[in-house]
Design a protein around this nucleic acid. Structure first.
Lengths: 181, 181
DNA sequence: GTCTATAGGGTGATAGAC
DNA sequence: GTCTATCACCCTATAGAC
């Protein structure tokens, strides 16, 4: 039952939104405040600086990743199946946080880069444990990264490879499962 | 025999450099001019606007992609082997142009997004022709995108997955070749 | 908790000297 | 071809009213 989001959360949502749809350059305090429906001064009450805003987004990402790791581990269809299928952008809160953080990482925001790296490491550990073969696990990670790259990072989103792969997710999962036996 | 690069080329080199190492936000006309060793006015003689600078970079990318397609097609070790091995960033002129264009695409530069998409399509066609199976070709594209994502897009570059994959390139090529038979 | 006003510096682009 | 000077605008952050 989602109650009305706090002003703080609306600011983070707005920041994510602009990062995703228009990129780092456009994500100014002015633009974020306008999108969140507050004044710049109001925004800076909640996040004392732009850097604090970035940290806020990274903290949100961290929390979502923790939940996601549980979901992966306990997925009925199995770790690899769930992991691959969740590697296409579905505009979930986690997807949005990841894409926004990636935009920041492409600037020179070491904290965003660190957060993404540690997310990858955690995913790898779970997948590796599930398949019991490092080379296979590495390959699965690459396919997952490729899916993300296509569906999330090229903002046009209609990128050929990923759309085909999305339409053929069953096929892709079968293809990758050839590696695990 | 590389003669001293023209001022125009030095400006493009500088633009690429800053995009790659510091991101879109920092790639201002001032910064590019300083890195290229010219004044802002000097820069704007060669590229009349920032948009023209972006187009210059995309044109350079286009030319490098044309050359690359020939290299892929005629690679002695075969299309897939060459294609996968060339999917890790080696700081080649093509790699640099791709990464710089990706930075721009993450802003809202439709031309950069288009250029990257058409590059992907051309690669896919060559790989698909070589392996003769669309599902396999799609999977190979995803692995390649994953390699690029890891070695090029997370600027720290020391990203786990890709470094391991780099050290184990033979292993990865073998893994993928399991799919082609 | 949210606003307006404003300081101080950066940003793309033009004009005109050499 | 390359430079300096300058313009109008945009950016982050602070101060202080309500």
């Amino acid at each position: 039952m989602p109650s009305a989001p706090s002003a703080r959360d609306r600011v983070l949502d707005a920041f994510e939104n602009i990062l995703i749809t228009q990129g780092e350059r456009t994500a100014t305090l002015d633009a974020v405040a306008a999108e969140a429906g507050v004044s710049k001064g109001g925004l800076l009450y909640h996040f004392g600086s732009k850097d604090a805003l970035v940290e806020g987004l990274i903290d949100r990402l961290g929390a979502l990743v923790v939940d996601d790791l549980t979901n992966i581990r306990t997925a009925p269809a199995g770790v690899v199946d769930y992991f691959l299928r969740s590697s296409v952008n579905t505009e979930s809160p986690l997807d949005r946080a990841i894409i926004a953080a990636t935009r920041l990482a492409q600037g020179s925001q070491p904290k965003a880069q660190e957060a993404l790296k540690s997310m990858q490491r955690a995913w790898f550990d779970v997948v590796n444990e599930a398949v019991g073969d490092e080379a296979v696990a590495r390959t699965i990670m690459l396919v997952s990264d490729g899916l993300y790259y296509n569906s999330a990072l090229l903002p046009t989103a209609l990128s050929e490879t990923s759309n085909r792969a999305l339409a053929n997710m069953d096929e892709l999962v079968a293809m990758v499962s050839r590696l695990t036996r």
